[in-house]
Each structure stands twice: as structure tokens, then as C-alpha cells.
């Protein structure tokens, strides 16, 4: 045997692994304005995809549309998530089915405690899946493990959701939530924005630790190459004017960084 490294990472083999997410010809409007204009994308279990694109390309719109945010209206096209019709499910059902959204701007919710809401959320997901609720003790253990891994104090986890958190703390809190909820597919919208280099490493490690597994997948949405140094994607796509205009391997991200979006997307 020639196994020298501790982990062998097998890039996905199409045909062997089932589709995790399949988006076909998606058109979506926000405030009656068409933003997504025929977007298609296929992600298999075990894969990490990156979507890059200029500001205003529709990256966050794609995130919100897949998450089911009110006001983001699908006008045509389909999306299948783990064998289910994604657009047929309410946002909380999408979460229970294993979808996690990492928000570009995590919301502050005064008066609602992080751990209290996460425990309720996790148990609501489990109920939807026909699983037993997690006890208070087991939940706290899980929360502590995830918080520790992201360098977050439990005190912060007990505070109201994101209130008074710095930009970096909000993004780390998103990763703690992802660790606790343990989704199948994470769509992370500019999780790297507002992070300094140390926080970027912590967040990148978190994504790898939680999501780099054969039965999970990630869609990383980012403006810059730098997160991709820590979380290496299997595929890179360029989103421009509401469509995927180019796809390739990790080298595409470097090319984009070098040449700019204008060149590539043209």
C-alpha cells in the first residue's frame, strides 16, 4: 500500500455519487427585476464548488433564492436537493433536509439567545426528520465542542444572536452554527469577507473540518481567491449577469485573480 498521508481525498467521480444539488435553467426575480437568468449548476456529494463573480452578479440572490427568502421569486427552472424538489419546501424544511446558508451579513437579533434558538432549531430539524430531540446536556456538549473549535467563548454563544459581535465574530458564529446543525450542503455567501488573515484560517479550517466529507458538499461564494487557499475547491464557476458563464478547476480561480472578471466573463 502506498498510503502515506493520513487522509486520502478522492475527487468526486460522476456517476458513482448521487447529485446533491441540481439546478436547471433557474430564473429568479427580486422586486420584479430578473436577476438570475438561466443558471444551471450540478453539485455532487463529496464536492466543493466555488462561485466567483463581480459585485452585483447575483451571487447573494442565488444564495437567498436557494434558501427560500421571501421576495426572491423563482419564475422558471428547477432545483433538486438530495432527491427533493427544493422550491417545493419552506425555508425551515430546506434546513431540516440538510441545507445550510452562511449569510454574507449575519443578522443581529436582540433578546434571542444564540444557544436557545440553536437548540430549538436543531430539535425542530430533528423532529421534521423523525428523529428524537437532543437533550439539553447533549446539546450543550455539542455547542461547546463547536464553539471551542472556532475559538468562540460559550459566554458569547449565550448572548443574543450576533448582537454586538464584530464582523469576524459573526462569521465565526455562522461556522459554529453550521457545526452544530451538521448540514449536508452548505452554501456560504462571502463567508470570507471582513475576516483578517488569522480568522480566515480558522474559518477555512472549520469549513474543511465540518463539511469535507464524502456525503457532504459545499458551495462557496466568494469575490476573492484567498479563501480558496484554505478550502480548495474541486470546481470553480464564474457567475456574471445571472448565469454561470465559465466553469473549470481550481486553476480558474487563479486565472480570475490574475486577469480580472472582465476578461474571463467577456
Amino acid at each position: 500500500m502506498f498510503i502515506t498521508a493520513g487522509i486520502i481525498w478522492m475527487p468526486a467521480c460522476p456517476g458513482m455519487l448521487p447529485d446533491m444539488l441540481k439546478i436547471e435553467n433557474l430564473h429568479a426575480t427580486v422586486a420584479d427585476k430578473e436577476i438570475l437568468k438561466g443558471l444551471s449548476l450540478e453539485i455532487n456529494a463529496g464536492e466543493i464548488h466555488a462561485i466567483m463573480g463581480p459585485n452585483g452578479a447575483g451571487k447573494s440572490t442565488l444564495t437567498y433564492t436557494l434558501g427560500g427568502r421571501p421576495g426572491y421569486e423563482v419564475t422558471s427552472g428547477t432545483a433538486t436537493f438530495d432527491g427533493r424538489d427544493l422550491f417545493d419546501m419552506a425555508p425551515n424544511e430546506r434546513a431540516a433536509a440538510g441545507l445550510f446558508l452562511g449569510f454574507q451579513y449575519p443578522v443581529e437579533i436582540p433578546g434571542v439567545s444564540n444557544v436557545q434558538f440553536l437548540r430549538e432549531a436543531l430539535n425542530a430539524q430533528r423532529k421534521w426528520r423523525g428523529e428524537e430531540p437532543l437533550s439539553g446536556g447533549d446539546f450543550l456538549k455539542r455547542a461547546r465542542t463547536q464553539a471551542d473549535a472556532m475559538g468562540m467563548h460559550m459566554d458569547m454563544m449565550k448572548r443574543p444572536v450576533n448582537v454586538g459581535f464584530s464582523g469576524g465574530e459573526k462569521k465565526r458564529n455562522e461556522m459554529v452554527q453550521m457545526g452544530i446543525l451538521d448540514p449536508k450542503l452548505a452554501i456560504l455567501d462571502e463567508t470570507d469577507s471582513g475576516l483578517d488573515i488569522d480568522a480566515l484560517r480558522v474559518v477555512g479550517d472549520g469549513i474543511n473540518r465540518i463539511m469535507r466529507k464524502p456525503d457532504k458538499a459545499v458551495l462557496l461564494i466568494t469575490h476573492y481567491q484567498r479563501l480558496l487557499d484554505y478550502v480548495q475547491p474541486d470546481f470553480v464557476h464564474v457567475l456574471a449577469a445571472g448565469r454561470i458563464v465559465k466553469s473549470g478547476g481550481p486553476e480558474l480561480a487563479l486565472e480570475l485573480e490574475r486577469e480580472g472578471y472582465a476578461e474571463i466573463a467577456a
Binding site: P91, N92, V107, F117
Partner: peptide
């Protein structure tokens, strides 16, 4: 937006 954030984590509306 706060309601959507909470629902995106699995809470019912």
C-alpha cells in the same frame, strides 16, 4: 430578515 434567518436554521415560521 430576522425571521428568515431563524427559519433558515430550521425553526418553523
Amino acid at each position: 430578515m430576522s425571521l428568515f434567518y431563524l427559519e433558515s436554521r430550521g425553526l418553523t415560521p
